[in-house]
Simulated scan of single mutants.
Amino acid sequence: MSDETTTQFPAQQQPDQPGLTDPMAPEPDHGENSWVGRGRLEGRKALITGGDSGIGRAVAIAYAREGADVAIVYLPEEEEDAQDTQRYIEEAGRKALLLPADLTDEQACIDVVAKTREELGGIDILIPNAAYQRQREGVKDLPVSEIEKTFRTNLVSTMVLAREALPHLSEGSSIIVTASIQASAPSPGLIDYAMTKAALVAFTQALAEDLGPQGIRVNAVAPGPIWTPLIPATGFPADKVKDFGGDTPLGRAGQPSELAGAYVYLASEEATYTSGAVLPVTGGKGF
């Protein structure tokens, strides 16, 4: 990934979430042509929600090339993106499991954990990464239905997935939560999203303390502005999309491929004494 990457994108929007990869200009870099595995996750079994595109796809590609079998969860509308991710996993010689599901439903969370165990033969790494965000005009016009959708997608599903996976995790397993720079530097237009991300930091730290005696590590990655389908589908003004990431010290948005290394590290043997940590990948923005 070059530091000379442009700080601007063509003005663009997608009408609804989930956002899709194909309409984006330029398409994000998920490490398709750059990630080289070194066997750091050989034989592991990973469940990644939101694994069809964006950060989830980049992590799925990296994990497969590091030797892991990967199950990805995604909304049915994202089937084309999911199949593309499946192809990259299988090209790495690993098993890919596609699990279309709406994780705002508790039973769906229960089912994807069960299917992952059945089809992959276990779970070693849980990455609750799926997220929902919309630009808000202010709290005065924020409907409860949208608050509930944001909380159920980002926060409640994470807790349910962890609850369901826990009986099947063993010493050396990892839970890696996707937090956000919004947890510490919240934007008024993303108030409900920011609240869920702050709660996920607390969840990560509390769960790390809870599961530490079992040898299960719990950490979080806190991305800054990353160029994923979530961005043009958030409802941001066109100028905000055009200049997305330009306010960071590095002067640009990050690519999903630039997050993958954090998730590989936290799941690997290189991080056996790292738990309860929040690893910022923010282009220099303080967390």
Rank of each mutant, 00 (worst) to 15 (best):
G276Q: 00
L207E: 01
G39D: 11
A271K: 06
P188S: 14
D81I: 13
S187N: 14
L155S: 04
C109K: 06
Q135T: 06
T21E: 14
G251Q: 10
K115D: 15
G245M: 03
E80I: 14
R152I: 00
G31A: 08
E27F: 00
G56I: 10
P280F: 02
V281L: 00
I226G: 00
P23S: 03
I110P: 04
Y193N: 12
A198K: 13
G67A: 10
D52Q: 11
V160W: 02
N154S: 06
T228K: 01
D210M: 06
D247S: 13
T153A: 02
S157G: 08
G37R: 10
Y263K: 02
L126Q: 09
Y273V: 01
M195V: 13
R117P: 08
Y132G: 03
A108R: 07
E66D: 09
R44E: 11
E91R: 12
V144P: 02
A238M: 06
V70K: 09
N129Q: 12
F244C: 00
G284R: 12
L99Q: 10
Q13W: 04
I226H: 03
S2V: 07
I55G: 06
A92L: 05
G224Q: 02
L142D: 08
A11V: 11
Y63P: 08
G246W: 01
G31H: 08
I226T: 13
R94A: 07
Q255V: 02
Y263R: 05
I127L: 14
D52E: 15
E258H: 05
S268E: 07
H30A: 09
Y88S: 09
G245E: 02
K149E: 15
C109F: 05
L103I: 11
D3G: 07
Q214F: 13
V36G: 01
G254W: 01
N219L: 02
K95A: 08
I72R: 12
D124E: 10
Y265L: 14
E148Q: 15
Q205C: 00
F287M: 14
V160Q: 03
V221T: 04
V278Y: 01
A202N: 12
T153C: 10
A58K: 07
K95R: 14
R57V: 03
D111R: 13
I123M: 11
A58F: 10
V144A: 14
E27V: 10
L126R: 09
D243Q: 05
G138V: 06
T153G: 10
E77C: 11
E146G: 04
A162M: 15
D111W: 06
G54Y: 08
R87P: 00
M24F: 08
E119H: 15
A92M: 09
G39S: 12
G31N: 07
L120S: 10
E269N: 11
V113A: 05
G67E: 08
L169K: 07
K95Q: 14
A165L: 07
A222M: 02
A199H: 09
I72N: 13
R87Q: 14
A96K: 03
I231W: 01
V70M: 07
Q255K: 03
L120H: 06
G261P: 10
P23Y: 06
E269W: 00
V70T: 12
K149D: 13
G245P: 04
E4G: 04
G43F: 05
D105A: 12
E270R: 08
R44W: 04
N33F: 09
V73Q: 08
S53T: 14
Q17C: 11
G212A: 11
I231L: 05
S174V: 05
